[in-house]
């Protein structure tokens, strides 16, 4: 997905841009009044700035939409697998060792959740963190701040 935006601040590899996505994409959404993006800081997002765009520039940005979905599936999938495996393990351990079922299953559940969280922290720590930021792919019009 590509959108037009105006750079409002830039620093090193990143820039803050004002996006006018709301009008185009959200106008038909029936739940837009609930959207976090409709609040005060609406439309201002952080993007990667490989073209060194400066404040005032009108730019085209690209959102890695497919990557967001994949990462969400990964996050919730790993957490779900963690809790279900933990619960099953806790249940089996309690069953075989004749321990109270509920507390041990609950413990397994919590350990599974923690293990899932730890795996995600490691996974996202190792991965290039910038991969999911939108990227400036073109400078449409130079702004006034250029000398």
């Amino acid at each position: 997905m590509e959108e037009k935006a105006v750079v409002c601040a830039s620093q090193k590899d990143f820039a803050q841009v004002n996006v006018e996505i709301k009008g185009e994409i959200c106008s038909t959404c029936s739940v837009r009044s609930l959207c976090a993006g409709q609040q005060e800081e609406k439309g201002t997002i952080t993007v990667l700035n490989p073209l060194s765009a400066r404040p005032g520039d009108e730019v085209k940005i690209k959102f890695p939409e497919g990557d967001y979905t994949k990462e969400l599936i990964r996050i919730f999938g790993i957490l779900l697998v963690g809790i279900i495996l933990g619960l099953a393990l806790g249940y089996l351990v309690a069953l075989f060792l004749s321990l109270p079922l509920t507390p041990i299953s609950l413990l397994g559940f919590l350990l599974g959740l923690l293990a899932g969280g730890a795996i995600l922290f490691r996974y996202f720590g190792r991965k290039k963190k910038n991969k999911l930021y939108p990227v400036i792919i073109d400078i449409i019009r130079k702004g006034g701040s250029h000398g």
């Binding site: 959404c29 739940v31 976090a36 952080t46 990462e71 969400l72 922290f121 963190k129 991969k131």
Partner: peptide
């Protein structure tokens, strides 16, 4: 909060997504 911690750009991109779960 967890998503914001592990992946800030993903948190930025979510928007309506998690409030939809809450409501």
């Amino acid at each position: 909060m967890f998503i914001r911690k592990v992946s800030p750009p993903l948190y930025q991109a979510l928007g309506i997504y998690l409030p939809l779960v809450t409501t």
